[in-house]
């Protein structure tokens, strides 16, 4: 049921944005940002349940909780960066959108450095046997 509701809201705000663009182009950007925020907010609640289930499953298999934390953080950064870069593209600022995506890559890399180091350690230990 929520899919239908979300799609309805998205289509409604899209139609309103087209009308608004005809009369007042400068008011379209805040409107599109607001519509995007409302849609994202309505989906966020479901994510907390998903993440707690995933964490419980990983704990059962004995995988370190830190990796799950990094994965969640990376998803969050990607979530926000994609939201911002699409809005920049929608406003016609393609250069800005590219910069936002580049910032996102750097942030994701900075978050995932510990995991990369762990992998290198494991590889080094594994290489010792060969």
């Amino acid at each position: 049921m929520t899919v239908v509701k979300l799609l309805g809201v998205a289509l409604l705000s899209c139609a309103a944005a087209v009308i608004l663009r005809a009369y007042k182009p400068e008011l379209v950007i805040p409107f599109v940002i607001a519509a995007g925020c409302v849609l994202l907010l309505s989906v966020l609640e479901a994510l907390t349940g998903i993440f707690s289930d995933l964490r419980a499953a990983l704990a059962r298999y004995g995988i370190d909780a830190r990796y799950m934390g990094v994965a969640i953080r990376v998803i969050g950064i990607a979530y926000l960066i994609q939201f911002a870069s699409n809005i920049c593209k929608d406003a016609g600022e393609n250069a800005l959108s590219g910069k936002v995506e580049m910032v996102g890559r750097v942030l994701i890399l900075s978050v995932s450095i510990p995991v990369i180091l762990d992998i290198l350690d494991i590889l080094a230990r594994f290489a010792a046997y060969i």
Partner: peptide, 8 residues
């Protein structure tokens, strides 16, 4: 909200 959900 995003900060709380994703622990950022």
């Amino acid at each position: 909200n995003v900060r709380q959900v994703f622990e950022l």
